[in-house]
Nucleic acid binder design. Sequence first.
RNA 1: GCGGCCGUGGUCUAGCGGUCAGGACAGAGGCCCCCCAAGCCUCUAACCCGGGUUCAAAUCCCGGCGGCCGCACCA
Length: 494
Amino acid sequence: MGRYDELMSLSLRRGFLLPSAEIYGGLAGFYDYGPYGARLRRNWEDLWLAFFLQLGDNYHLVDTPTIQPHVALEASGHVDLFADVLVPCTQCKETHKADELIQAATGTSGEGMDVEQVRQAIREEGIVCPNCGGRLGEPTAFHLMFPVAIGPKGDEQAFLRPETAQGAYLGFKRAFEILRKRLPLGLAIVGRAYRNEISPRQGAYRLREFHQAELQIFFDPEGFDALLSLEELENTTLRLMWATHRDEVAMPTLGTLLEQGDLPPFYLYHMAKVQAFYLDTLQVPPEAFRFYELSEEERAFYNRIHFDVQVALESWGGFQEVGGVHYRTDYDLSRHQDRSGVKMTVFHDGRRFVPHVLELSFGVDRNVWAMLDLGYETGEKAVLHLPPRLAPVTLGVFPLVKKDGLPDMAEGLYREARTWIEASYDASGSIGRRYARMDEIGTPYCITVDYDSLEQDDVTLRDRDTTKQARVAVKNLRGTLQGLLEGTTDFDAL
RNA sequence: GCGGCCGUGGUCUAGCGGUCAGGACAGAGGCCCCCCAAGCCUCUAACCCGGGUUCAAAUCCCGGCGGCCGCACCA
């Protein structure tokens, strides 16, 4: 079985990621999160929020609708950029983008043409398939955004949002007021976004409904660098692949990059923070992580600097994008200012200007999948090595045997644990089998009540990754677990 | 979207015109009472959907849905 199938099988058996509407044959590009998957994703989002909101003392979580008005997405550029008229060839079956066909045939741009205009242009210019010279078929409109009709007559046009970012831009002015006009201002949104992908595939990699975790940092381009403590990061090694050197991952220190001056200090600072999130918090092995610079042709025109965050997975056959660090300048706020007529300028440090935006953007579903792939060990025993705080269940509670009052004590501990942590009680099958069940969903710790427990009021605490055990007094259990989860307690010291 | 391959209990699969549709693992109950998937007994549970061919379809044909791969797409 390939790695992808292995993970999909785990996912189905244990309930991480499941085909949506499966009883009706499924719906391509849509997945359910099962009982453990939903918890895993939530835990990932919580870790993300805790980490990234800490980057500034004026960074906040907001939430905005998933339906956005046509006019806003027109201003952002999505209506134009996300719409294509496609023309199939009747002979070779190749599908062509109409604007490219028309550009090639007439030398003038075919962008923005509707289906009727394209049909007319093909007829008048006698355009044939550039591939095989065959006759072109019926042009069809294809939109990467899902249109939504609002109101009883459905005459108010809107779209499902193609990214969460726009919500932060639309709400910037109010948030800036509410938060007492301070820069930098960070607005984080964790939520769903939608793209009508032509061919969704590969499980969580390309979904039509997906989750993003994005932090939009609004800042003064002239004063941001000075606010960041770069000194302590100077020796940090960044793992990155330049657009000009796609053959190897470079590992310069941040100090070196500062001296070279190609990337602004604020940008480097945030790269270091993003990398720390992956290597330290998510425990991604360094060699499986890199920043990947997009060349000028590859990146969107409004991104002045664009590095993708990539993680290498066996199920993806190598590095794939899980996030991005985008310096979007004042493009977004300026566009909305122009279109809405509402001033987006701020008065700050004696100057009036439109704030610039640094966007830290992450695809949650891809990241959750990455955690499964990086953590899942198969073979003699199946163990999901998730960082403890990410695990859907934190504690397994078992009685060693199902008699002599052991289940009573274990159930009591389980109920107590549930008040502050995700716990699971299991008395069925052998003790080894119960450990194995917990191992496969990534539960980091299990406690077992044995005969000594009844006498001494303690339990054995077992570590998932080492299978080592330690005896812990019941009264110390909560403190010990908290220490382990926070990383302040070392299991071997117990 | 085009082309190729594929769709059998929860998972992995055997069966490829007539089978009580078999197995392994998982799950439930029981015996056992055990600190790393032990063993034994019992049980639960499947042919993706719709049409067609045929005396007879999981098996052949058509369509749909879904999955993987390649191409295209990926602000």
